[in-house]
């Protein structure tokens, strides 16, 4: 892909995903918009049920059966991309890596052949032999040692981290511009996780790969991503540079999530637990979707649905209280608490 550094390669515009039912509309993801530049890693965080995986699937063109894109569009390398897994052709600028590498690999096919298959699917003219040779090169690029030998092995002969590298090899084999990684390291140990994340970092430096990293792990995205998108109940509630979002979070939800971590509890000498749970599809009320769990809740929160507004350039937040005295007061309290 001939894209310049810093150029936008992925544009998600007002994507709304609904349950695919004829006479009612139950939104699962509402009006999500963001862009990712070449070589950039953007983290998408939120609890289970926040709609982050569905958004990621829409970007990768893999929306499952039973849901549909109600509004909005996804554009990759300046060309419109389908969002539906049933579409005949998928945009070749995007690939996806899933959480569980064991279930996404074919257990009865040699690893090298699976990579070669991905190459031949995208470039139908390639001979089997060329594809196999190229597959070994791709396996080498994802730092699998003795790639020629490993290519002849089956997935069960690989460890979890190595399988995830194979998955990454399959997805980058046709040199996409955008890689959507949905919880790629959640099933892995911290030490193996570090290896896989280092690999993704290197791929974006070497190939200019743009990565959309979906994770529930704030610490992980905080360490690796340039920018963060925080989702709650199907919509974006905060987005901005990682440093700003984590150091100076604006939305009460982001602050609450940070305080929930055991690391924070150890530092602060006490555990904070966010009460309640993410509202499920169909439970979404008028007003702010986070209001029921929010400590800044006022009557206004129950009445008006806040919009996603720029608090500072590039730092967007969806909360009526941002910039108000309660918020500032809260910031001071946090600072005193030695956070």
């Amino acid at each position: 892909m001939a894209s310049e550094p810093g150029q936008t390669v992925l544009t998600v515009d007002n994507v709304t995903v609904e349950l695919d039912r004829p006479h009612e509309s139950t939104p699962l993801v509402t009006d999500v918009s963001f862009a990712v530049r070449r070589g950039e890693m953007v983290g998408m965080v939120g609890e289970s049920g926040s709609g982050k995986s569905l958004t990621a699937s829409a970007v990768a063109g893999l929306l499952p059966r039973g849901v549909r894109l109600a509004r909005g569009a996804v554009e990759i390398d300046g060309r419109a991309a389908g969002t539906d897994a049933t579409a005949r052709t998928r945009h070749d600028g995007v690939a996806m890596v899933f959480q569980n590498p064991m279930t996404s690999l074919n257990p009865s096919m040699r690893v090298g052949d699976q990579v070669a298959e991905a190459i031949r699917l995208r470039r139908p003219g390639t001979s089997r032999r060329d594809a196999r040779r190229e597959a070994v090169e791709v396996l080498e690029r994802v730092e699998i040692t003795r790639p020629a030998e490993r290519a002849r092995q089956y997935p069960f002969e690989f460890s979890g981290g190595m399988r995830q590298r194979v998955m990454i090899a399959i997805s980058i084999a046709h040199r996409p511009s955008v890689l959507v990684a949905d919880e790629p390291t959640t099933a892995l140990d911290v030490t193996v996780q570090r290896g896989v994340m280092d690999l993704l970092d290197r791929l974006r430096a070497d190939m200019g790969l743009a990565v959309l990293l979906v994770s529930h792990d704030l610490a992980l995205v905080g360490e690796r991503c340039d920018r963060l998108l925080v989702m709650y109940a199907g919509e974006l509630v905060e987005q901005g540079e990682t440093e700003n979002v984590l150091r100076r979070p604006l939305h009460p939800y982001v602050r609450a999530l940070q305080r929930c971590t055991p690391e924070h509890a150890i530092a602060a000498g006490g555990l904070y637990s966010l009460p309640g749970r993410v509202p499920q599809a169909g439970e979404v009320r008028t007003g702010c979707r986070f209001a029921a769990r929010c400590e800044l809740r006022t009557a206004e929160c129950d009445e008006t649905h806040p919009t996603l507004d720029a608090y500072a350039p590039g730092h967007l937040v969806r909360c009526v209280h941002v910039g108000r005295p309660e918020q500032d007061h809260h910031h001071e309290r946090r600072a005193e608490g030695g956070v």
Partner: peptide
């Protein structure tokens, strides 16, 4: 090694 592999909350 185990401790150092744990991601930290802030980038820097």
């Amino acid at each position: 090694r185990l401790l150092s592999a744990v991601p930290r909350m802030t980038a820097s």
